[in-house]
Design a protein around this nucleic acid. Structure first.
Length: 201
DNA sequence: CCTGCGATATTCT
DNA sequence: GAATATCGCAGGC
């Protein structure tokens, strides 16, 4: 079993954590079922200085997890329907975090497919979005605020880091404020449909 | 292939 | 009342 990423990985700025998370492994062990995915798409939210961040206006009942020490889970309901999974970054009192937007299924494929129901048939679209990823991995609001370095339910294990040659930085998705900042990172070999490679890339 | 829209928690005006 | 860190469906081409 690979080692977990250490606390010092998560206590840095969210922009650094988001970039460095690519290639590592998001693991859940829920109901005795181990599922895992390679992290392929992340976004950084820089807290007080970032108008697109949930933490921009300070702590609330919902966003409290973002202000915990780096390495804690922040799970929230998006558009009243979907769950999104984040990890807190930086140090206690600073509301930074990283949104997980996509993973490549690695372990427990059958369980992920079952959790996704009739949409689980295609491995390429099993966990390629923030709402899909939480369903596939079995993440719920019960996992909000847990410490990913201590919990046996949700954890981040060491994988294979990606070189800059294999990573693209782009603007974040679905936001209107600070929409020009390139704080979304995507593993190049698994490109979302709205990205196209140039011939010399 | 594409575009429009419903669902509806939480926060802000 | 309006906006939002989304997804899947319906319908048109």
């Amino acid at each position: 079993m690979p080692a977990r990423l250490p606390r010092s990985f998560f206590t840095r700025d969210a922009t650094v954590v988001a970039r460095e998370l690519l290639g590592h492994t998001l693991v859940t062990c829920i109901g005795g079922i181990r599922t895992a995915g390679r992290i392929t798409e992340t976004e950084a939210y820089m807290g007080a200085d970032d108008p697109a961040s949930h933490a921009h206006r300070g702590p609330t009942a919902r966003n409290r997890a973002l202000f915990l020490n780096g390495g804690h889970a922040y799970v929230y309901v998006s558009y009243g329907v979907h769950l999104c999974f984040n990890v807190s970054a930086s140090v206690p009192g600073i509301g930074q975090g990283v949104l997980f937007r996509a993973v490549q299924p690695l372990q427990g494929l059958g369980h992920m497919m079952a959790r996704r129901g009739r949409h689980g048939g295609n491995p390429l679209t099993l966990a390629n979005g923030p709402g899909k990823l939480t369903v596939a991995l079995g993440i719920t609001m019960e996992h909000n605020r847990i410490d990913l370095l201590k919990s046996d339910l949700v954890m981040i294990e060491e994988g294979t880091p990606l070189n800059d040659a294999h990573v693209i930085a782009t603007p974040r998705i679905g936001i209107t404020k600070a929409a020009d900042l390139p704080w979304r990172w995507v593993a190049k070999l698994i490109l979302p449909k709205n990205i196209t490679l140039q011939p010399n890339e």
